[in-house]
Every structure is written in C-alpha cells, then in structure tokens.
Design a protein around this nucleic acid. Structure first.
Lengths: 169, 169
DNA sequence: ACTGATTTGGAACGAACGGTCAAACGCAAG
DNA sequence: CTTGCGTTTGACCGTTCGTTCCAAATCAGT
C-alpha cells in the first residue's frame, strides 16, 4: 500500500511490490490475480483504515467542530513515516478516468468524507446553508491534499486550515 | 500536451507522443532531448496558455467578482474537446514529489492562481480577512479540479461553484 | 543538374515491464 | 525414513518501454 501511495499505480512496478511486501512474485500472483487486483485490494484497505476508521475515531473523540478541524489539521500535516498526500486523491486523478471499478471505490470514499462533514455540521445546527457548506469543506479538503502532496509551503496549508476554522464561526 | 493531460507523464509512451504530434521519433528526440524535457516544455506551454493567458483574459473581460466565478465555472465544466481536469494539478500529484524542476513549475503556477484570486479580491475591497479568503478560494479551486477529474456528479461540482458565489457575498 | 548539409523515417537496442511456470522446498501422515 | 501435497521460489517468457542510430529523402547553393 505504501508503495502505491508514494509512487502511484503506474509508477509502482511488481518488483517494487515484491521488495516492499517481502512476498515473492509467484505468491503475490497466486494470492491476488494480477497487479490491478492487488491495487484494488490496497486501495480498499487504505479506504477502510486511513479514511473510514480514521474519521470515525476523530468523530468519536471530538465534539463536531473540533473533529472537522482535526481532519484538516491532519491533512495539512506531512508526517515522516507516511508518504505525502492521500492515496485516494492521487488515484482519483491517475486511475479514475480510465478504470470504472477504481472510480467507484474512489467516489464512494469521497462520498464518505462528504458524509463525515455533513454529519458533524448537522450536529452543530448552524441553521441553513449547510448543504453548500459541506461542499465547500469537501473542496477545501481535497485542495489541501493537493497542496500537501505538491510540497506547497506549510504556511499556505495552515492558512487553509485557518480559513476552515473561520468558516465554522 | 493533450496526451500528457489525458494520461499523465508515466502513462504516456513515446509512441503515444509520436501519434499525437505527428512528429517522428527521431525528430522528437532531436528537438527535445528526452521524454522528460519534452514534458517540461509541454507543462510550461500549458501553464502559459491554459493558466496564465486564460486567467488574464477572464480578468480583462470581467469585473472582479465575475472573473472569479467564471474561473470556477470553467473548472467545474468538462468539455468534450479537452481532457478532464487540469494538467498542473495532475502533475502536482504524480510528478512533483519526485522531480524538483517540475515541482518548481507547478508551485509557481499555483502561486499564479493564488495571485489571480488575490488581485480580484483586492479590487473588490471587501475589507479584512482577504488573505484567508484567498487561501480558501485556492483550496476550493484545486478541490474542484480533483472532483472534475474524478468524474464526480455535476451537482457536486456546481455546489462548489455556488458556495464560492455565496462566499463572495 | 549536381553536391553537400540537414532533416526525416523507422529499424534496432538494452532495460524494465507484467505475468507464467516448473523445480525445490517444508511438512504432516503413514 | 518415505511418501504425497501445498507452498515458495526465482528463472524465464513475450511485450513494451525510452533511446539510439543510420540510411533515405529533402533542400539550398552553385
């Protein structure tokens, strides 16, 4: 998963996967049919662990407003033990246009993020305009992941987070 | 350029480039040193035509607020005669992490977009908070391009545009 | 029309790709 | 210890990659 995360689908060779997993070529192909299937498995694993479970934990351990801010703070950061950016966003741009099954996984994940924001906002009960605010949060979130992956200066990324704090009142 | 735009750097073979340009292999390599140099040239060309000149035209032909809205409307659209999404954003995710020279071009372009928003907002004179608003616009803009490339439903993309209109008051 | 310089076209290169396969291995049952 | 079986292994396959190179074609100057 890390390999795909760091180098993309096309940029990761089967040799890279053998090196990264320690599993041998033949075993890789007997366990997963081919590279594409392995990628789909990795993508679904990432979606579950890095998106679904991560957001669920944020929602459980924080009040609504802070949960949203924590999600943005995490997206702005670029930890040393993890490749920069988000595998789902990278995949949305690289593979989604050419592969319907991948596109379905990615769009479902994006809908999940959207739902996370919608649920938190609903709990805030800020009145009307919530639907538009959800879209804005999703857009800002994806944009932030692009900036992080592109290596934009930390100040730019923090400014996006700050703008979210302001938007939430 | 179209080929790189549609399929990315790694996904475009030299054979694709020969087919797309009508220029022969040898001539391609004598004119540009190698695939990477050709890509950098194409990227700079895209930056000039699709980013710099396009935004300048919007700024010239529209009042500030409408220029910003027009930029978002264009980013939300996915014309038939052009690949979906934005080559600069695609490149930011695929190549920027691995190539410093490409990263420089991309970041300069992103700064240019940021400047476009900043100049229009300044002309609007909406008072304080402008700096944060610029970051928000940039984030929303990049997010919109991700959504467009990923094939997200039109309604989602239009909602982002609508949220920008609301943000601008 | 002839010649020398330049551009063009496509065959050919080694390297790396995704994918396959038969031999070697580990291990439980007799 | 021998046998049979499921797994592991890395050598190997055809293809495609980026790149090179040379012969044929084109053109300019006389």
């Amino acid at each position: 998963m890390r390999a795909f995360w760091a180098q993309g689908y096309g940029g990761t060779s089967v040799a890279d996967l053998v090196a990264a997993t320690g599993i041998n070529r033949g075993s890789l192909y007997s366990g997963f049919t081919d590279k594409r299937t392995l990628f789909l498995t990795a993508l679904r694993h990432y979606d579950r662990v890095q998106r679904e479970e991560f957001l669920a934990r944020l929602a459980r351990e924080n009040p609504p407003r802070e949960a949203i801010l924590a999600a943005f703070a995490a997206a702005a950061r670029s930890p040393d033990d993890t490749p920069p950016g988000c595998l789902l966003v990278n995949t949305a741009l690289e593979v989604s246009p050419h592969d319907a099954e991948v596109r379905a996984v990615v769009n479902e994940a994006l809908a999940g993020v959207e739902g996370f924001f919608a649920d938190r906002l609903e709990a805030l009960e800020t009145g009307t305009g919530t639907r538009a605010t959800v879209q804005a949060l999703l857009g800002l979130f994806l944009g932030l992941r692009v900036l992080t992956r592109a290596g934009a200066p930390q100040s730019t990324r923090e400014a996006v987070s700050a703008q979210v704090a302001e938007m939430l009142g």
